[in-house]
Computed example of a mutant assay.
Amino acid sequence: MEQMMKGRRPRAAGQVLLVISIILAGCNFNLGSAGSGPRAWIDAPLEGSVLEPGQVLVQSHVSDAAGVVEVALIVNGAQIRVDSPTGADIPITSINQAWDASLPGDYTLEILPKNSAGEVGRSLPIHVRVAGSPPSPTSIPVIVATLTPVPSPTFTPTPTVETPPLAHLTSNANCRSGPGTVYPVSSSFVAGTELAIVGRNDASTWLVVKTPGGSTQCWISITTVEAIVAVADFLVLIAPPTPTSMPVPPMAPTALAITARTCSSETYAVTLHWSDNADNEAGYHIYRDGTLIANLGAGATNYTDNPPGSGPYVYGVEAFNAVGLSNRPTVNEIGCII
């Protein structure tokens, strides 16, 4: 009897290996080797998010040199759905997949992209919680996966650790609290610095980046970084409210000049002209030899004076508002002698 049992064990082991070989041969799902194949990362929901029960939109990016043809959403190790992304022939694209998160509990989300060669990548897992009282063990439905990669008995592929796209600074740059120069500067970086890209504004003119160390985020102008092909694929983030600016005196006029003059026994007239640079002035003051001779309204750019004598004179023009006065440029008038 002992000899019979010894003879049956190798035969049983061979049968198990035969069954595993048949399963692997029938599964058209190639995981590829470590460090190769398509890549993916999940943009939303974020790590550690607490979600309300209901439909959840899982937003992710997938990339591959030859394009990604299928994207599988994996929840707690089970495949929930497989979708074909739009633009499957471009190197990087985004995809949104709906997940019915109606049952409270803790969940692990993963994305498995598959390229045209059959290679499959794997995103870093994202851990989320669906709020509410956890259901009793008997009420949890069993989800049967329709496409589950079977790991080889002798090899377990290592998931590729994805890094977010980087912005490479081509010049020194300020990183601000919002997408515009009206926002205060949060940090400054020198040319050559690489910063992880988190998202963009709606106009794709500013990028949201992580500061070195990843502790904070700020906005940087896209004109300060190397050209990025797929800017439109980045997540659009809402800008913070525009900061309220403090009132300031108006800007001074420039290019003050005498553009016309009349000098005769009957008439002596001098016409001044200047460039209006202010957008917050209440008006303009006109001076002759330091004495105020006229008040003009906002937007004025010229004034004609009839001096009382023969001169010479020095004319000055300044802008004013409720806060204060601008600088006062001057121009010399040689006078009128008949």
Rank of each mutant, 00 (worst) to 15 (best):
S221W: 06
N201M: 06
K210P: 04
I258L: 05
V209C: 02
V190M: 04
A278H: 04
W206H: 11
G214Q: 08
D289P: 01
W206D: 14
A255F: 02
G213Q: 03
C263W: 00
A278Y: 02
V236G: 10
A282C: 07
V190C: 06
A196E: 14
T193P: 15
A278T: 04
V209M: 07
D276T: 06
A255Y: 04
P212F: 10
D233V: 01
T193I: 01
T267E: 14
D276L: 08
I197Y: 11
G290Q: 08
G213A: 06
A230V: 00
C218V: 00
N201I: 01
T205E: 15
Q217G: 01
G192E: 05
L256Q: 14
V231Y: 12
S275T: 10
L195E: 09
T254K: 13
V198L: 08
V209F: 01
S215R: 11
F234E: 15
E266S: 12
P250A: 07
T259A: 05
L272H: 08
A257H: 11
S245N: 10
A257K: 14
L235M: 08
R288G: 05
I228C: 05
A239I: 00
T216L: 13
V225I: 13
V248G: 03
E194G: 03
E226D: 12
T267C: 02
V248C: 03
D279S: 13
V231A: 12
V270Y: 01
C218G: 10
V190N: 12
W219P: 00
A227T: 12
T262C: 05
D279T: 10
E194A: 04
T291I: 08
G283C: 02
W206F: 05
C263M: 00
R261F: 01
L195F: 05
N280Y: 03
E281A: 15
A282H: 03
E266C: 04
H273T: 09
F234Q: 15
T224E: 15
A203P: 07
T242C: 03
V248N: 07
I197E: 09
L195S: 11
N280K: 07
A252T: 02
P247R: 12
T254S: 14
E194R: 11
G213L: 04
I220E: 00
P243M: 10
P247G: 12
T262L: 07
A203R: 14
V190E: 14
Y284K: 12
L256R: 14
D202M: 10
T259I: 04
